[in-house]
C-alpha cells in the first residue's frame, strides 16, 4: 500500500509540472497584460512596473524563475492586491472555502446517497419519479439562481438567516451558501446512486443472497450498497476538489472571503500570478483527491488491491 501511494505521488509530480507549464504559457501568449489598463500608463511607469515584476525578462527566464520559486512555495506577488503575495491570499482564503466546501460535500454525499437509494428501491414508483424530478431540477438550476432565491426567501422575506458574510463562522451563516453549493452535487449523487443501486440489485450475487434467505435489509445494505458505492466514490474526487477549492459564484453571492473568487478576479484583471496560484492549488487538490479515492476504492473493492 505504501509503495502504491509513493508511486502515485511520484507520478503526480510530472502531471503537476505539465499543468503548470501549460497554464503558464497559455496565459503569457494571450494578448494584454496586468498593466494594460483602459487609460494607458506613462511609458516610464510601465517600464518600471515591468521591471519590478520581471516581466521584461525573456519568457523562458520568467518561466524558470517562476518554477524555481514555486518549488519553494513562493508563487510571487499578486499584481492586483499589491500588498499581498499569492501564497498569503490563498492561505487566508482557503480555510473559509474548505470549511464551507466540506459541509457542502457532506450534505451532497449523504443526502444524495439517501435520496438515490430510496428512489432505486422504489424504482418506477411515483416516489421515484418525484424524487428524481427534483434531483434533475437540482442539476439544471444553476447556483447563481439558487443563491438569490434562497436569500430572498430565508434571509429577506422570512429573515431567518443572514443574507451573506462569514460573521462569526457559526452555522447560521453557513446554511444558505452550503445549500447553494451542495444542491447541484447532491442531485448528481442522487442520480448516480439510483443508477448504480438499480444495477447492483440486479447482479447475480444479490440473487444468491436472496436465494439464501438473507433479509432484505442485509441484502440492500451489506451486499448491494457496497457495490453501488464504487461509481460514487469515483465521482467523489472531482466533486470534492471542486467544492473544497471554493466556488466563484457562491462566494460572490454570499460574500464569503474564500479563494473561489480569486481565480475569476485574477483572470479578469490579468493577474498572472494569482491565476497561476489558483491553478496550482486546484490541480493539487484534484491530484490528491484522485489518490485518496484510489486508496478508498482499493479498500472497498478487493479486486483492485494496490500492492
Amino acid at each position: 500500500m505504501l509503495a502504491f501511494v509513493l508511486r502515485r505521488l511520484a507520478s503526480a509530480v510530472p502531471t503537476l509540472f505539465i499543468v503548470v507549464t501549460i497554464s503558464f504559457f497559455l496565459m503569457r501568449f494571450a494578448p494584454g497584460g496586468p498593466f494594460n489598463l483602459e487609460r494607458p500608463l506613462p511609458p516610464a511607469t510601465m517600464e518600471n512596473l515591468m521591471r519590478a515584476y520581471q516581466l521584461d525578462q525573456p519568457l523562458w527566464r520568467q518561466y524558470l524563475t517562476y518554477m524555481s520559486n514555486a518549488l519553494t512555495g513562493d508563487f510571487g506577488p499578486s499584481y492586483i492586491y499589491k500588498d499581498n503575495s499569492v501564497a498569503e491570499l490563498i492561505g487566508k482564503g482557503l480555510p473559509y472555502s474548505m470549511e464551507l466546501g466540506f459541509y457542502a460535500l457532506l450534505l451532497a454525499l449523504v443526502g444524495g446517497v439517501i435520496v438515490g437509494t430510496i428512489a432505486a428501491l422504489r424504482q418506477n414508483s411515483a416516489l421515484d419519479f418525484a424524487v428524481m424530478s427534483v434531483a434533475t431540477v437540482g442539476v439544471t438550476v444553476p447556483n447563481f439562481v439558487v443563491g438569490p432565491v434562497l436569500t430572498l426567501i430565508f434571509a429577506i422575506t422570512l429573515a431567518w438567516l443572514p443574507a451573506g458574510g462569514w460573521g462569526d463562522g457559526s452555522l447560521r451563516f453557513l446554511i444558505l451558501p452550503m445549500i447553494a453549493l451542495a444542491l447541484p452535487q447532491l442531485a448528481v449523487f442522487a442520480r448516480l446512486t439510483r443508477g448504480s443501486m438499480i444495477e447492483a440489485l440486479r447482479t447475480d450475487h444479490i440473487r444468491t443472497a436472496r436465494a439464501y434467505g438473507l433479509p432484505a435489509k442485509s441484502v440492500v445494505v451489506v451486499h448491494a450498497m457496497r457495490g453501488a458505492m464504487l461509481p460514487i466514490v469515483s465521482y467523489l474526487a472531482p466533486c470534492a476538489a471542486a467544492l473544497l477549492t471554493g466556488s466563484a459564484v457562491v462566494e460572490t453571492i454570499f460574500t464569503i472571503p474564500g479563494v473561489g473568487r480569486y481565480f475569476v478576479l485574477g483572470a479578469i484583471n490579468r493577474d498572472y500570478t494569482l491565476v497561476m496560484g489558483t491553478v496550482v492549488l486546484i490541480a493539487i487538490f484534484v491530484i490528491v483527491f484522485n489518490l485518496l479515492v484510489d486508496i478508498l476504492y482499493g479498500l472497498l473493492d478487493p479486486r483492485v488491491r494496490h500492492d
Binding site: 450475487h205 444468491t208 436465494a211 439464501y212 451486499h223 457496497r226
Partner: peptide
C-alpha cells in the same frame, strides 16, 4: 416466511460461479 425456507431447507447453486458470489 419464505426466508425461513430458502437458504435453510431449499438452497440453490447457479450457472455462473464467477458472478454468483459477492466480489467484495
Amino acid at each position: 416466511a419464505l426466508n425461513e425456507i430458502r437458504g435453510a431447507k431449499i438452497t440453490m447453486i447457479f450457472q455462473e460461479p464467477m458472478t454468483s458470489l459477492d466480489p467484495l
